[in-house]
Write a protein that binds this DNA or RNA. Structure first.
Length: 639
RNA sequence: GCCGGAAUAGCUCAGAUGGUAGAGCAACUGACUUGUAAUCAGUAGGUCACGGGUUCGACUCCUGUUUCCGGCACCA
C-alpha cells in the first residue's frame, strides 16, 4: 500500500495501518501531536485503519482542523458521561463549533448548572479509561435496527441522504451515530470545560421537541484552555450592556417597556454625531431626505406584502374612524408612495430617498438583547429607484458609501453574506425570471468588485436577494450591520412606473439600502469594538477641564470652557472639591479623550496641560496648539 | 415564543439550615485647599422585583406574574 506525503515523498505501508502508526513511523513527537489524517479528501480518525493507496496529510494539534476534531470527540465524551450518569438519556446532535462543542440531550429531568461539574468529572474518568473510539460502517437497515428505540437518532438516520455511508462510533458502552473525524482515544481529551446549559429545538425546528444542550470547550493544553477562559471573562467586560451602564449611554427599564431603549445624555450625544454624519454622507452621495410618520395605514403594508409576511412581528393594528393603522416596521411603502407622488421620467432616475426615522417591530421576547435587538429602533433607511441599466452602478455606489462609513467608524466587518432564495421555501414571491436576474446582478457586482462573500441560499428577503454586511458581537452573535437589497416586487405591487425614452410606462427597480444598522444596534457594536473609549469625534464628553484649585483657577477654566463650547465641542468642568488625582482617575474611568489640567502655570502662560485617555503622559501646550490637536483628532476620526 | 437560571441600597456584590438586612463605591454633611489614577470623618439611603400561599414568624420555602441573563427559534 503506497501513501504519498505532502512533500511528495512516497512510502509503502502494510494495509490496515492507522494515521497514528504512520505518525509513529516518522517520529515519536509527531505521534504525540497527531489527531487524525486526510487520505485524499477523506478525514480519517487517528485509529481508523487505512486500506488503500492515496495522498496522506497528517492533522496535528497546530492544524486548524485539529481543534474541530478534538472538540467533536469531546462532544462524544460528554455524551458518554451523560449516558453513564443518566442511562435514560437520548441524544440529538453533538458537533464541534467555532470555539468548542455542544451536545443536545433528551432527558426527563432538567439538568442544572451544578450538574455540569459532575458530568465534567465523569468525562475525566472516561478520558482516563482511554476508550478507543471505534468506527463502524453499517447499512441504513442495521442503523435503524440498532437505534430503533431512539426517536432522535432514527430521525437523524432517516435524514441521511441515500448513498452516504452511515457510520457509528463506539467508545466503551457508548455507541453513537456519527460522521466521524475523531481523535481515536478518549485519553487524547484532557483540557476541557463545560460552560453552559441551554434549551435547543431538535433539528432547529420550533414545532419539534426541545432538548437540553450542554456547551463546552476543549483544548490541547491547559494554557490554551485557561487562555480561552480568560478571553471569555474579558468579553464580559466588553459587553455593551455593561459598558452602556457604566458610561451612562442608555437604559432599559421595565416600566418604560420591554425592549424599549432610553438614550441617556451621553448616549444621545454620540447618536447625534452619528445622525449628523449619516445625513451629511447621504447628502453628499446624492440622497434626498424625506420624513414620514411612524404610524401608517395597514392598507399600505398589505399592498407591500409586509402585512402578509410579518404581521406576527408587528405591533397589533389600531382602529380609529374605520381606518386601521399600524406602527410602521419599515420605510419601504412610504418611500414607494413618494416615488408615486409625481410622474417620473427616465431622466429623473436614479432617485435616492433617505429617512432617519423610528420603526417598531414586535421582536420575540426571547430575542431582546440590550441594544442589539429592541422593539423601537431609529435608523436611516434608503430606497433607490433606478432603471435596469443603473442597477449595477447604484449597487456599487451604495457599497462604497457603506464601506466608507465602516472605515470612518473604525468597525470590523466579519464577512459579507449574499442571500438568495430557496425554491423549496414558500416565503419568496414567485417570479423566477426576476429572481434570477436580481441574483445575477448582485453576484456580478460582488465578483467584479472582488469582494469576498458567503452565499447563503434561502436567506433572501421575500421580495429579493440581498448583500448583508455581518458583524460579530462580543457575545458571538452574528448581526447585520448594513444591507443592499434588490427588489423587483414592490414596484410591481405599488404599480410604480416612469416614462422611458420611447414614451412608454415602465417599471423602476428598487434598491433597499440599510446603512449603518439602527442607531441602537450601531451603539452596541461601537461600545463593544471601542470598549467604550470612543474616538474624539464621537465621545460623549470630548474634553474635561480639571482646575487644580477651585478658587485660584476657576476664572480661566470657565473662559476656556466657554470658548471650547462655542467652538462646538462637548466639554465639562470637574468643579468638585477633590484632589487632582481623584479627578484624573474619575475622568479616566469615564474614558474622556482629553483631560486638561488648569493650575497656576497654565493660567500664567495661557496654556493647558493635556492628558489623553489611556495614557499617563501629559503635555503642556498653548491653547491654540490644543485647539489644533483637537480639530485634527476630530477630522481624522481618531482617538 | 420555547428550555434553563437570576432578581437584595443609585452601582458592584455579601447575607448555611426561616427569627423583617450588610460592605465597598457613588450621594449628602463637615474638615483638609489640594499639580496628575481613590484625603479623612460622619450622615442618610431598602415594601429584599411584584402578587398570593405555608408558618407564631418569609429576603429565605411553595405558587403566579414581570423583567433580566444563557441558549434555541425568529430577524422585512
Amino acid at each position: 500500500m503506497l501513501l504519498r506525503f505532502p512533500d511528495g515523498a512516497e512510502k509503502t505501508f502494510t494495509e490496515g495501518i492507522t494515521p497514528l502508526d504512520v505518525a509513529k513511523s516518522i517520529s515519536s513527537s509527531l505521534a504525540k501531536k497527531v489527531v487524525g489524517a486526510y487520505l485524499d479528501d477523506d478525514l480519517y480518525d487517528l485509529n481508523r485503519t487505512i486500506h488503500r493507496d492515496g495522498a496522506i496529510r497528517l492533522v496535528t494539534e497546530s492544524d486548524e482542523k485539529a481543534f474541530e476534531i478534538l472538540n467533536h470527540s469531546s462532544a462524544h465524551l460528554l455524551a458518554q458521561a451523560v449516558k453513564t450518569l443518566y442511562p435514560n438519556a437520548q441524544f440529538g446532535v453533538g458537533p464541534a463549533i467555532e470555539e468548542g462543542f455542544y451536545y443536545d440531550i433528551a432527558l426527563e429531568t432538567s439538568l442544572r448548572e451544578e450538574d455540569l461539574a459532575h458530568i465534567e468529572k465523569q468525562m475525566a474518568r472516561h478520558a482516563k479509561e482511554n476508550h478507543p473510539m471505534v468506527r463502524k460502517e453499517v447499512s441504513r437497515k442495521e442503523a435503524l435496527e440498532i437505534f430503533k428505540d431512539d426517536f432522535y437518532k432514527t430521525t437523524l438516520i432517516e435524514a441521511i441522504p441515500d448513498g452516504d455511508a452511515i457510520t457509528l462510533y463506539q467508545q466503551g458502552d457508548f455507541l453513537d451515530l456519527c460522521r466521524g473525524g475523531h481523535v481515536g482515544f478518549t485519553s487524547k481529551i484532557k483540557h476541557f470545560k463545560l460552560l453552559s446549559l441551554a434549551g435547543a429545538y431538535f433539528r432547529g425546528d420550533s414545532d419539534g421537541p426541545m432538548m437540553q444542550r450542554i456547551y463546552g470547550t476543549s483544548w490541547f493544553s491547559k494554557e490554551a484552555l485557561d487562555a480561552h477562559l480568560a478571553l471569555l471573562e474579558e468579553r464580559k467586560e466588553r459587553d455593551h450592556r455593561k459598558l452602556g451602564k457604566q458610561l451612562k449611554i442608555f437604559m432599559l427599564n421595565s416600566e418604560v417597556g420591554q425592549g424599549l431603549a432610553t438614550w441617556l445624555p451621553n448616549g444621545y450625544a454620540v447618536r447625534k454625531v452619528l445622525e449628523d454624519y449619516v445625513y451629511e454622507e447621504e447628502r453628499k452621495a446624492g440622497y434626498l431626505h424625506v420624513s414620514t410618520p411612524v404610524l401608517g395605514s395597514k392598507h399600505l403594508y398589505e399592498t407591500s406584502g409586509h402585512w402578509d409576511h410579518y404581521q406576527a412581528n408587528m405591533f397589533p393594528p389600531m382602529e380609529r374612524d374605520g381606518e386601521t393603522f399600524v406602527l410602521r416596521p419599515m420605510s419601504c411603502p412610504h418611500h414607494m408612495k413618494i416615488f408615486q407622488s409625481e410622474l417620473r421620467s427616465y431622466r429623473d432616475l436614479p432617485l435616492r430617498y433617505a429617512e432617519i426615522v423610528t420603526q417598531h417591530r414586535y421582536e420575540a421576547s426571547g430575542a431582546l438583547t440590550g441594544l442589539e435587538r429592541v422593539r423601537a429602533m431609529t435608523l436611516t433607511d434608503a430606497h433607490i429607484f433606478v432603471r435596469p441599466d443603473q442597477i449595477k452602478a447604484e449597487v456599487i455606489s451604495a457599497y462604497e458609501l457603506i464601506d466608507k462609513a465602516i472605515a470612518d467608524l473604525g468597525l470590523e466587518i466579519a464577512y459579507l453574506e449574499f442571500a438568495t432564495r430557496d425554491d423549496s421555501k414558500e416565503k419568496f414571491h414567485a417570479d423566477e425570471t426576476l429572481w434570477n436576474e436580481a441574483e445575477a446582478v448582485l453576484e456580478d457586482v460582488l465578483v467584479e468588485a472582488k469582494i469576498p462573500y458567503k452565499k447563503v441560499p434561502g436567506e433572501a428577503a421575500f421580495y429579493g436577494p440581498k448583500i448583508d454586511f455581518q458583524v460579530k458581537t462580543v457575545l458571538g452573535h452574528m448581526i447585520t450591520m448594513s444591507t443592499i437589497q434588490l427588489d423587483f416586487l414592490l414596484p410591481e405591487r405599488f404599480d410604480l412606473t416612469y416614462i422611458n425614452a420611447d414614451g412608454e410606462k415602465v417599471r423602476p427597480v428598487v434598491i433597499h439600502r440599510g446603512y449603518i444598522s439602527t442607531f441602537e444596534r450601531l451603539m452596541s457594536i461601537l461600545l463593544e469594538q471601542t470598549k467604550g473609549a470612543f474616538p474624539v469625534w464621537l465621545a460623549p464628553t470630548q474634553v474635561i477641564l480639571l482646575p487644580v484649585s477651585l478658587d485660584a483657577h476657576m476664572d480661566y477654566t470657565k473662559t476656556l470652557y466657554k470658548s471650547l463650547m462655542e467652538a462646538g465641542y462637548r466639554v465639562k468642568i470637574d468643579e468638585r472639591e477633590e484632589k487632582l488625582g481623584y479627578k484624573i482617575r474619575d475622568a479616566q474611568t469615564q474614558k474622556i479623550p482629553y483631560q486638561l489640567v488648569i493650575g497656576d502655570q497654565e493660567v500664567a502662560d495661557h496654556s493647558v496641560t493635556a492628558r489623553q485617555y489611556g495614557s499617563s503622559e501629559q503635555h503642556t501646550v498653548s491653547v491654540e496648539e490644543f485647539y489644533d490637536q483637537l480639530a485634527q483628532a476630530v477630522a481624522k476620526k481618531s482617538r
